[in-house]
């Protein structure tokens, strides 16, 4: 097992954790076109639900 190959498989395990694991605090998404950041979206601002009053 070469050092490079070991590093690569370890990177797969690292990326799996970085992208799918860890505590999720308020997240942010950056939307970009042609490498230019255009829109910054806050998850917290996006998630809200619509409640209606219960019918009498």
């Amino acid at each position: 097992m070469s050092a490079i190959a070991e590093r690569e498989v370890a990177l797969v395990d690292l990326l799996d954790r970085l992208l799918g694991g860890g505590v999720v605090i308020a997240g942010e998404i950056t939307l970009a076109v042609a490498d230019v950041d255009l829109v910054h979206v806050s998850l917290r601002a996006l998630v809200s639900s619509v409640e209606t009053a219960r019918p009498k």
């Binding site: 970085l18 694991g21 860890g22 999720v24 605090i25 308020a26 997240g27 942010e28």
Partner: peptide, 9 residues
């Protein structure tokens, strides 16, 4: 506890 990658404020 590690925090999800890319969390910035």
């Amino acid at each position: 506890l590690p925090i999800r990658y890319g969390t910035r404020v």
